[in-house]
Design a protein around this nucleic acid. Structure first.
Ligand SMILES: [Mn+2]
Ligand SMILES: [Mn+2]
Ligand SMILES: [Zn+2]
Ligand SMILES: [Zn+2]
Lengths: 132, 132
DNA sequence: ACACTTTTTTAGAATCATTATAAACTGGAA
DNA sequence: TTCCAGTTTATAATGATTCTAAAAAAGTGT
């Protein structure tokens, strides 16, 4: 398994549950944007033995802390996560409630002119809301 | 009261509660970014008679629907609202959990090159996260 | 003012995503 | 194999938000 090393190197034990969640999250060509409940469904389809909801939450938060996932700010009742942890932007389809990646080349450079005293810029994210 | 007309024109009855909430929200020079609980505190300081939490929620949602407030997407347990309903951008101070307006002139024009078939762009918002 | 209708307010209950708990289990080091 | 820190799990707790339904207030007409 290719994820065993990755997990070990992060100080996370490569448990059965984490490896299966890794497969669901990272065995993909494209970026995966998801809520916890969507992830839970994918896990159900992918494996026979069930993984408890608490473990899904624990794992997602552990991966987020290690930098393998990040949260995307959206006005939704559920939190959205992203397997693309690079700096990039999003379309948000309001009707479908789906995120779509926008590469930096799709948006062009963003130059923030204003600064706040004593604060550093950590990230610059563009959210483009889509309607029909 | 200057808000009576505004409310009536929107089809909202100018009740004591709504007028007091209007004063707290809109009698300001600067944009007001707030959560429901922050707003509740301001209301407490501003008035003697208390307004129930349900009314604060009702009113904020009514004002949002009428276009007097808008939600700002932030990764926070509480929803943030903004009295500045024009198209503009934000700093988000992660430590203080505070939003700060960025005018369009502070960011410069953003040109979205990619398009999604059958979808129109409704808004383009930049969120700049700040750390110490 | 009064009667009548509609909207709004309100306290409290319900909802639901998320987090906490604490007991059982497991991975890996020795 | 023994041991222990780390992990999983079912379940309870939390907390922001929404719902409910009865009381109050506002608008309308008389
Ligand atoms: Mn988190
Ligand atoms: Mn709302
Ligand atoms: Zn993405
Ligand atoms: Zn703002």
């Amino acid at each position: 398994m290719k994820y065993i090393e990755k997990l070990r190197n992060s100080g996370l034990r490569p448990t059965k549950q984490r490896l299966q969640i890794c497969e669901v999250l990272f065995d993909r060509e494209k970026t995966f944007h998801f809520t916890i409940n969507e992830l839970e469904q994918k896990i159900k389809n992918h494996t026979s033995r069930k993984i408890s909801l608490a473990t899904v939450y624990n794992t997602v938060h552990a991966f987020e802390k290690k930098g393998y996932l990040k949260q995307i700010p959206i006005n939704s009742s559920e939190t959205y996560f992203d397997t693309n942890v690079t700096d990039h932007h999003h379309f948000y389809d309001l009707k479908e409630e789906k995120l779509i990646d926008l590469e930096n080349s799709d948006v062009g450079p963003i130059n923030i002119l204003k600064r706040i005293n004593g604060k550093k810029i950590k990230s610059v994210e563009v959210l483009v809301k889509l309607e029909d």
